[in-house]
Design a protein around this nucleic acid. Structure first.
Lengths: 182, 182
DNA sequence: GTCTATACTTTGATAGAC
DNA sequence: GTCTATCAAAGTATAGAC
């Protein structure tokens, strides 16, 4: 019995390394150290090397958010409950602002172009799913779209500010503020 | 007559390279290429190497924001005009969302610890100067502090979202939304 | 599948000629 | 002050033994 038998087992560790160090900072040596796998094994799982690892990480994140955030936003009978669930999942996922958003970090760096499609898809899906829930909760199209954009951007800003000021309280207060907007 | 005679002449180019490629992505080769200076010359200006270059860039940005944003926020006779000037300067500086904020990028990366003091000082100065203007414009202490935090974080979020969605319109709309909050 | 060894490139930094 | 040459270290990636 081994701890790691397939790509899916490496993914969480990989995600954490990329989140902590960014794309360029996540060296293969660091990845090898954290996963406990030699470079040969890593290339066995990811023949495309580092780029394929990062792509898998982004895909995994996208999958998680679809399952726990985007889909509930769209399918919840009571749209307000879906939005509530979104804020809870977001707070949990980002450890109340102590974690950063890899997709946001990638968007700001020069690897954005390489993963542009995935990054764009993630933010678009979030914004549109939230806008849909807001419209179903009674808002007109324009107001729903605007508020959705505001909240999606606001979460990213809360993460940046919390890290910059080294104060998770910033994240908590911004989330509460946004919840009051709904 | 030379194009570059002192540190101050290199700084704008340096800033642009760090903004575009981040700390790790801004290799000396890239910097040498964009400044037109050999590595020897660069180390003549910055004996501390890349870290000193990045520190100089952050200091330059801090100086610019103090002169064009923070100080006007505090000293403008009519605080609302100071806030108006802040939004205008911000929009100009970030090229309406086409540029990113180096300080924000650094805050999200793993070089944050190395420049933590400078990063924190930049965001603290912005938030506090804005809170002061809001208080002078009639808001109570708590409301001013909260709104200042919201706007400072909101600008960062607008930059992330605009880059991620590859749509400067996002930045423009978020700025307008925040202006309406004041 | 996993490891070690290795190839090859790029990195930040230094030395020294001019 | 500026350049070229060079260094040691770290980077990604590959090869091949087991």
């Amino acid at each position: 019995m081994r701890l790691i038998r397939e790509r899916a087992d490496v993914l969480p560790v990989l995600t954490e390394v990329f989140r902590t160090h960014g794309y360029e900072g996540a060296s293969l040596a660091l990845i090898s150290q954290h996963t406990g796998l030699g470079k040969g094994s890593l290339y066995n799982f990811f023949p495309g090397g580092k780029e394929e690892m990062a792509a898998a990480v982004l895909e995994g994140i996208d999958g998680w958010f679809h399952a726990h955030v985007f889909d509930p936003l769209r399918s919840h009978e009571d749209p307000r409950r879906g939005i509530e669930a979104m804020f809870e999942a977001t707070d949990r996922y980002f450890h109340s602002g102590e974690r950063v958003c890899i997709v946001g970090v990638f968007a700001l760096s020069d690897v954005r172009d390489r993963f542009a499609a995935r990054i764009n898809a993630y933010f678009t899906a979030w914004r549109d799913a939230l806008a849909d829930a807001l419209r179903r909760s009674g808002r007109d199209e324009a107001s729903a779209a605007n508020l959705a954009e505001e909240v999606v951007a606001g979460i990213q800003g809360a993460l940046v500010a919390a890290r910059a000021l080294d104060d998770p309280g910033v994240f908590r207060r911004r989330i509460e503020w946004m919840q009051a907007l709904i």
